[in-house]
Computed example of a mutant assay.
Amino acid sequence: MPEKSPSPRPAALPSLTGMRFIAALLVFLAHMSLARMFTDQQLNKEIDKYFGMLASVGVSFFFILSGFVLTWSARADDRPLLFWRRRLAKIYPTHFVTWIGGLLLILLTGRAVSLTEFAPGLFLVHAWVPKYEVLYGTNGVAWSLSVELIFYLLFPALLLLVNKVRPGNLWKWAGIMMLCVLAVPVLAETLLPNEPAGGAKFGWLQFWSVYFLPASRLFEFVIGILLARIVMTGRWIPISRTVAMLSVVPGYLLTVWLPGSYGLVAPAVIPLALVVASGAHADAAGRPSLLSGRKAVRLGELSFAFYMVHLVVAYHGPVALGSRRQWGVFEGIVRTGGWFALTLLISWVLYHAVEMPVMRRWSRPKAPPSAPVSPASGASSNR
């Protein structure tokens, strides 16, 4: 069978950048549902039912996207140490600032501070610890960075392995990775105790092993790597961005309806994989969309800071998450709008004052200074 022609590979994938903010917004909405801020308890129940699992979709999107984009932008002459340096320069400064900010705000509330609870989060190893207070730390969303850190450490080796897969076998390996995603909750439900915590429909250890454990989330990252290779080698199937996005709806409904930990990750992985790959394929072909527009891309650039700061603002801002305060519908909506606006403002500051300056300064080694040109050498070179 003749090889298919590879898709053109532009450096930028604008619609995927725009999608990043949508994914961060899904996580925001899921945490909004946790506030149970309305005096109408039936409304709280419905919001929690249909919005509460959106964070799972958003995080899974980020994990697949991470593998895809890193593969898409990989350079043949890149060295692991330089790659790791760039990734740490990207994620750690914003994490450090939000970790410190969360800690200071906790201290201001008078809450007791335990080093064993908070220190693992500072070093991004807390996703390996099956304790809620450790996973939450000073900024609850940072557990996903602990997972991403493992992705980054393994990426050079994973990319080397995937690059050795023949293009005709890439879809087969993507299917195998998907079966692994499906196997994780089966093993968790079979092998781990079902001891629900906090009214959840699954046991805590099942929840942790399926949702937080970095080893369990690695399959989504590898799916992203494989999909990037599929698009780059011209093996992508003819599916539009619109169809791919619509496929997320039944995937999410399964996330809501499936019992136990089966709905935590697996139902939305295939639709999200289709969204990422179809978006990249359209970008490579030069087909614009609303998500590739300037404003959408700008919001996508702020998405990491937005994601990292929104939960800290939720606990210490207008909605007072965790305080059990409740309001009427109008006031609850206004407070949510204030939470969103304040989060967006702080994320803009973090992006311009922390993320970008550190990336420019530390993401790559300084170029060695040019040797001064002596008059003699200068004269010689002009001959």
Rank of each mutant, 00 (worst) to 15 (best):
R85A: 07
T71H: 02
A76E: 15
K90Y: 11
S73I: 13
K172V: 12
G102F: 04
P185D: 08
F123S: 05
N169Q: 09
K172Q: 10
S144D: 11
V97E: 08
P130D: 06
F118V: 12
C180E: 03
A119G: 02
V97H: 09
V129Y: 03
F123H: 04
N163Q: 13
L107Y: 06
L81V: 13
L182N: 09
N139Q: 06
T98H: 01
L159Y: 10
T98R: 00
W143G: 02
T116F: 08
A119R: 03
P167Y: 11
V181R: 08
V162A: 15
T116C: 01
N169I: 00
F63R: 01
L158E: 04
C180R: 09
E117R: 10
L170S: 06
L81K: 09
K49T: 14
W143P: 02
L179D: 08
F123P: 04
E133F: 00
I47Y: 03
H126Q: 15
G58P: 08
R86S: 14
A89F: 08
L115F: 14
I47H: 00
R79M: 15
F62N: 03
K49D: 10
L154W: 11
G168S: 12
Y152D: 07
Y50I: 07
L159S: 03
A174S: 10
V69L: 13
P93K: 15
I176L: 13
F63P: 08
F123M: 06
W128C: 04
W72N: 03
L107D: 05
R79V: 15
F155T: 05
P185F: 07
T71Y: 01
V129F: 11
L159A: 12
G175A: 13
T94M: 08
P185V: 07
P93T: 12
P130H: 03
L154A: 14
L149T: 13
E148M: 00
Y136V: 09
L149G: 12
V125H: 04
L54I: 04
G168E: 15
V184A: 05
L65E: 02
L107Q: 12
G67Y: 02
Y152T: 09
S144F: 04
K172A: 14
A142N: 05
L179R: 03
L81H: 12
I150A: 14
F61D: 00
W84N: 09
V97N: 12
L145N: 01
